[in-house]
Design a protein around this nucleic acid. Sequence first.
DNA 1: CTTTTTGCAAATCTTTTGCAGGCGA
DNA 2: TCGCCTGCAAAAGATTTGCAAAAAG
Lengths: 148, 148
Amino acid sequence: MKCGQERKNINIEALNERVRKAGMKLTSQRTQILKTLLNHPEPISADEIFKKYDGRSEAMDLVTIYRILKKFEESLIVSRLEFGDGVARFELTLESGHHHHHVICRQCQRVEPIHLCDLEEHIKTVEAMGYKSLSHRLDFFGICSRCQ
Amino acid sequence: MKCGQERKNINIEALNERVRKAGMKLTSQRTQILKTLLNHPEPISADEIFKKYDGRSEAMDLVTIYRILKKFEESLIVSRLEFGDGVARFELTLESGHHHHHVICRQCQRVEPIHLCDLEEHIKTVEAMGYKSLSHRLDFFGICSRCQ
DNA sequence: CTTTTTGCAAATCTTTTGCAGGCGA
DNA sequence: TCGCCTGCAAAAGATTTGCAAAAAG
């Protein structure tokens, strides 16, 4: 499995299509969440999405957001990430198995993607241990240049 | 930073000593938790530790366990791990910066350590992005041989 | 028109906090 | 003795569940 490509040509139409293909109905809430994920530069939490619309006419229930994100995750449309602060964050899953890793600033909590992944060695080792259907997660934690 | 060594010669005396050195009082609860971590083959959650003693004469409060684990984490005696199921797990921190990574079975949730870590390339890349004080986490998720 | 989805209320689960009494050094 | 620790009760924060009404196809 290779990874590293920057996401390209992802638009709201294509995402809506993936929702339909997954057998889900396309509601305004679902499209709104997809648009939010598309425009947000880094992984976002359910509550952050909620606050973006809270009070506005497009407001939606936090529960709805959790439910939609869970369904999207099951259909591999989004990926759930956890960085150790007790809050799950979500980002759009890239096409065809491509994925990336993250650098998290311990000070400002900002998350930056790293488009580099060469873990062939590691993967072979784990397969030799008897594991199948492998996926992985690699995250770096540090202090970003802005916070130093 | 190199990593890969199996833990050796860790005993309860040495651990008690680390607690004292960190300026903490040595209580029976703290020693009990250290012994539990020492004997448990894989990362364990606060609740699992609680259940090990619940009902017995050595029973301790869940809150106490959380508080002790947090203090131990601050003193780098234990490491907190999260694998995405909403529960934090803990394991003893190995000496002198050595650490290891994990393979988690998606079926039975068992966690196995991998004593392999060659991420020099990756670390250089992230440093080039301007980050300092880097640490990292690398986990593999798959189906173990027993569960296939 | 049928099935899925949403909103609201309430529950659940993990982890944290406040406070008074207890214990280690 | 003195201050750190523990236990109990309660709170807090994230996420889930039940159910009736609303919307999608």
